[in-house]
Amino acid sequence: MLRKKLFNVGFEAVATVDRRPFRLADLARYPLFPPEFLDFVRRVLPSELDHDIVQTVVVTGRRPISSTPRA
């Protein structure tokens, strides 16, 4: 989805250059995800999805030498 968004606005050579699982234990390191939210997630989200439903990525792209934005 992110790669598609970059392409749609006019980037080229769009690629995902890093992709890793991002688990609940990783979310717990961030202030945006307080313990009560993580408890909520554990209740709502099937445990088998914790391993791969969120991933961290690095997406790269390039502005074409000659272009106008598509959106």
Partner: peptide, 21 residues
Amino acid sequence: LAEMLRVLRPGGRVALGDLVL
């Protein structure tokens, strides 16, 4: 993303770390 495209020079690059579902 459109704003990023605008402020990059032609041939300029982005590298975005993000979370995806």
